[in-house]
Design a protein around this nucleic acid. Structure first.
Lengths: 193, 193
DNA sequence: CTTTTTCTTGACCGATCGATCAAAAAAGTA
DNA sequence: TACTTTTTTGATCGATCGGTCAAGAAAAAG
């Protein structure tokens, strides 16, 4: 079997994810990663491959830990407005102080999607998945009488996924929180019956 | 007076802007910049200062050449919907093939706003300026009878500026054009009387 | 002319980049 | 025990990073 691995792979990947999330791909050096993870350089290479593979693994971990829970919260409700507001407002009011600002997927889209097809595939899949879940939730809401019959739901879903990504950009850019909340409330108000 | 400068400062700044726009701050090296501008390293430093100052100058130039025209197009019309559609659709359909994909301000917000207060100030000012112009244009549209009386215009302006930034992220991330156009049309349709 | 000032050129700086190598250490197998 | 396999450690690789230095070239001022 050989020597047992001494570090926790998931913990190291979590630390690497936060570092990439905070400083970006080009802004994160291998020394940053060894310091953040507490894992030696060669051990990182053996466990994850080179820097790009580690970045992709970090992106996948972000998706599992921060993106899929949002999708599941939407999948399990007929009240899209309440679920979305509950999921997104905490991201804006500083109650996630331990997490870096902004969205890792948005940062990846802006920095790496043009250069790295694997990043682009993950980003587009994540965005498309959110749009689908939003549409299905809105359709359930309509069936339950919580959503107006006059709203174009596919259009609303496309607008809402776009709005969410825009909020994360403007959040990272230091925009006023009240503007972002107003934007979110406006797109949610479209569904009012 | 000393020796005359041999290169065109505006042309060099334009080339530097496109390089930063395309590859980001950390992704652009001084060698990239000397190659793109055709200007020697020391000449760049004398004309613009260090890398950060050149980046800020490039950001200002982007604002002047790509952002202010949008604001002016909105300032000069009562038909917000037509003006916005005319301004944004070309960005999505590949007819700006000579320009890099995505929005330089969005990339700057994602990559540098957290680290550089001067970048953050420019980004927030640009976003806030667009929101103001959108609101004023919508108010003119209402006075002209082109916008429904029931719409919350400040909310609509906040949503629309957020949507535009979201479109640029998703565009950079390789999202389907039809989704982005649908999102834009949905937010514009909110104004229909 | 000479002097002064500015710009250009190309070499160069220490630091850091991502990545690799070799040897020691720890585990299972025989 | 000895052998094999894997991980860890730390040194090290060539390349490149942002930034600077010094000498020469060009323009205005004397």
């Amino acid at each position: 079997m050989g020597r047992a691995r001494e570090f926790d792979v998931d913990g190291a990947l979590d630390a690497a994810m936060r570092t990439f999330w905070e400083r970006g791909y080009d802004g994160t050096s291998l020394s940053d990663l060894t310091e953040a993870t507490g894992v030696g350089r060669q051990s990182l290479y053996l466990a994850f491959g080179d820097k790009q593979r580690l970045y992709l693994a970090a992106l996948d971990r972000y998706r599992e830990h921060f993106y899929l829970p949002l999708l599941e919260a939407l999948s399990g409700t007929v009240d899209v407005r309440a679920a979305l507001r509950a999921a997104i407002l905490p991201l804006l009011d500083g109650s996630c102080a331990d997490d870096p600002r902004g969205c890792f997927l948005v940062a990846a889209a802006a920095e790496r999607a043009g250069d790295d097809a694997e990043v682009r595939a993950r980003v587009t899949a994540a965005f498309a998945g959110l749009e689908t879940v939003l549409l299905e939730a809105a359709q359930r809401g309509r069936a339950a009488g919580l959503v107006a019959d006059t709203v174009d739901l596919p259009g609303w879903a496309a607008l809402t996924v776009t709005t969410i990504q825009g909020m994360r950009v403007m959040e990272a850019g230091g925009a006023d929180r009240s503007t972002l909340i107003r934007a979110l409330d406006t797109v949610l108000a479209m569904l009012h019956p």
